[in-house]
Design a protein around this nucleic acid. Structure first.
Lengths: 231, 231
DNA sequence: CAGTGGTCTAGACCACAAG
DNA sequence: TTGTGGTCTAGACCACTGG
């Protein structure tokens, strides 16, 4: 008897044919109905497998144009957007944080541009230092658009940090993330307990709820931090 | 007449209910068959929408346990693993590179551990400097396992860089990526034309073909580089 | 054990784009 | 115009897991 045909077995089979270069980059592969016939299953099952491979970047599909092996079969990595408390507690360390400052202020030009916000609209700025078992871990500089987040004025961030409060209370519809590196300023060095100029891993994130920006945040991690993922 | 029900409309509808906190984090949402009845469509269509939301991290699903809004509705970011030539050419710059060195060598302990390779197995080491319109852009230090890549010995990397050659000739089945920041060593600073100690954005990647490691590579980008993605 | 999601099927119609 | 992938349906059986 033959093994059952599931979309996973088809996925593996097609992956192998690409991997072994039976189907080379740029090459057209058989259409769904042919594969279904060859494998003895429904077309929907083939579709499920090929769609998965296309989502992952190994195939390129077009109506009428057929399905091709991607010219550069680039894999796509999925990154969980880290929740700092989980990150730290997952390593068995204790998570604490301090709100260093909190005030309404006019954001600098750079932040206004990234949030696409008018000149004279004040935002809530919150600076937070996050610690892992007492040791400085990450410095967060966040701007929040009060117009997008009802109730933000009355929130006390002593019990829950701004990131998690926003996650639970102001889901966004889209956003942008940028990863980069920066030398620690004198201020950052002092807060994070590293030498001035040390290389910090930086995440900049802006999120939107429809047309309205919700928050812009810059996270600066201590020098030995690494963001990891599997592909 | 009512609008047609597609999995996308269901996706949007459920997203809105989560966003507006009709269904709160941790809460159980109706089962697929109920939603299908309510929306007047097939269960498979509901399944398609909910699976998408679960893949993106907004829902958690379990057989028998039902579907819940994720406690921390963390969005997952997908990033394309950048192909440096495309990155540079997409900005209208000219891509060039130089192979600085190429030799069989015993890798240092750190690399051996990451590739899970024995003590005395020599690997091919290739160091490459990538340029954008002439300006140094990224320094690549790569180790390749010849046992995993047939034909690597005869390849001339003057016409195609190692990364793209491997993508086209040695697809991997799994891998790990780590993003971090590092201060430029004197050597790196010289190559990348930055000051010693400048913060570099670093990507470390190891890839596997089944049980066998294929390549381990460290990419150090010039200081103003940022890896961007949308969520 | 029983309820829920996971998946397969056979057929159908539609949307898009290549020629 | 017409071929290909995209999607929906109604029904079925299965796999996992909570109670």
């Amino acid at each position: 008897m033959s093994a059952p045909v599931t979309w996973q077995t088809i996925y593996d089979d097609v992956f192998r044919r690409i991997s072994e270069r039976t189907w080379k980059p740029g090459e057209l592969i058989p259409k769904e109905s042919d594969l279904a016939l060859e494998l003895g299953c429904a077309r929907a099952t083939v579709n499920r497998a090929l769609r998965q491979l296309a989502d992952e970047g190994l195939l390129e599909r077009r109506r009428k144009g057929g399905t091709r092996v991607a010219i550069n079969p680039v894999r796509k990595a999925t990154l969980d957007i880290p929740i700092i408390r989980h990150e730290i507690e997952a390593r068995g360390e204790a998570y604490t944080y301090e709100v260093l400052s909190r005030s309404m202020a006019a954001p600098p030009k750079r932040v206004r541009a990234r949030m696409r916000i008018g000149d004279d609209i004040p935002l809530l700025q919150i600076k937070t230092l996050h610690r892992s078992s007492g040791a400085p871990y990450m410095f967060e500089d966040r701007w929040i658009n009060p117009a997008s987040v009802s109730g933000i004025g009355t929130v006390n961030f002593d019990d829950i940090n701004a990131n998690e409060w926003l996650l639970n209370n102001a889901l966004y519809t889209s956003g942008e993330i940028a990863f980069s590196a920066a030398n620690a300023s004198k201020l950052e060095a002092g807060l994070l307990n590293v030498t001035t100029g040390a290389a910090l891993f930086v995440i900049n994130r802006v999120t939107w709820n429809g047309p309205q920006s919700v928050t812009a945040v810059r996270l600066a991690y201590v020098s030995d931090y690494a963001l990891r993922t599997k592909i």
